[in-house]
Simulated scan of single mutants.
Amino acid sequence: MTRNFEQFPDDDNGNVLWQMAEDGDDLAEAHEIEFSLAFQSEELAEKCALYLLKEEQKISLFEDEESDINEWIITIYIYMEPEYSDIVDLEEWFTKIAEQHGGEYDGWGCMAYVYDDEDIEEE
């Protein structure tokens, strides 16, 4: 498989999407993509979480106790086809929202959806 740099640009997002495609993940299928925002205080995280809920976003909020610093994480769950331009647009929006609420954008990820034809049995 040859990499199409228009579909998978040579940057972090393009590299992740390319790796997903190389691993056999069907990028034409919708995935639940998780975007993360990080905050230094519970109060800031809660204000941002309330804003995101008003924007009708599906979120979770938790304290990252494994972090060296006391950090609160908001995860936003978006069900979408993992397309480069859409991910970049959402990253820009979430970066702006995080900054407006005293936090920072902390990246995205999703579960891989890889199916082996042999795993699907016909009855």
Rank of each mutant, 00 (worst) to 15 (best):
Q100L: 15
D86G: 04
E122I: 09
E81L: 06
V114F: 01
H31A: 04
W108Y: 14
Q40H: 15
N13V: 11
P82A: 00
D86P: 02
W93H: 12
A28N: 13
L17D: 01
L44H: 12
W93V: 12
C48F: 00
E32Y: 12
Y105Q: 13
C48W: 00
D68W: 03
D106A: 15
A30Y: 15
G107R: 08
I33N: 01
D116S: 03
C110E: 04
E92P: 02
E91D: 11
E34Y: 07
Y84D: 02
T75Y: 09
I87R: 00
R3Q: 07
L90Q: 05
I78H: 04
D106E: 14
N13Y: 06
A98L: 01
E55K: 15
L53G: 08
A30K: 15
S36R: 13
Q57W: 04
G24D: 03
E6M: 05
L27W: 05
P9F: 02
E46C: 11
E42D: 12
M111H: 15
T95Y: 10
L61S: 01
E122S: 05
E99T: 10
E121Y: 06
G102C: 09
D68R: 02
D25S: 05
D11E: 06
C48G: 00
M1V: 10
D116A: 11
A45G: 08
Y51I: 07
L61M: 03
E34I: 11
I87H: 01
Y79C: 05
E32S: 12
P9H: 01
E122A: 03
R3H: 04
D12K: 10
A49L: 12
I76A: 01
E92S: 03
F39W: 02
E42Y: 10
E6H: 10
I97V: 14
D117L: 11
Q40V: 14
E6Y: 07
I33S: 02
I97P: 02
K54R: 12
K54E: 15
I69A: 08
E122Q: 08
K47A: 09
I76M: 02
E123S: 11
I97L: 09
E118A: 10
P9M: 00
L37P: 05
H101T: 15
G103S: 01
A49N: 13
A21E: 03
L90H: 08
G24A: 03
W18V: 04
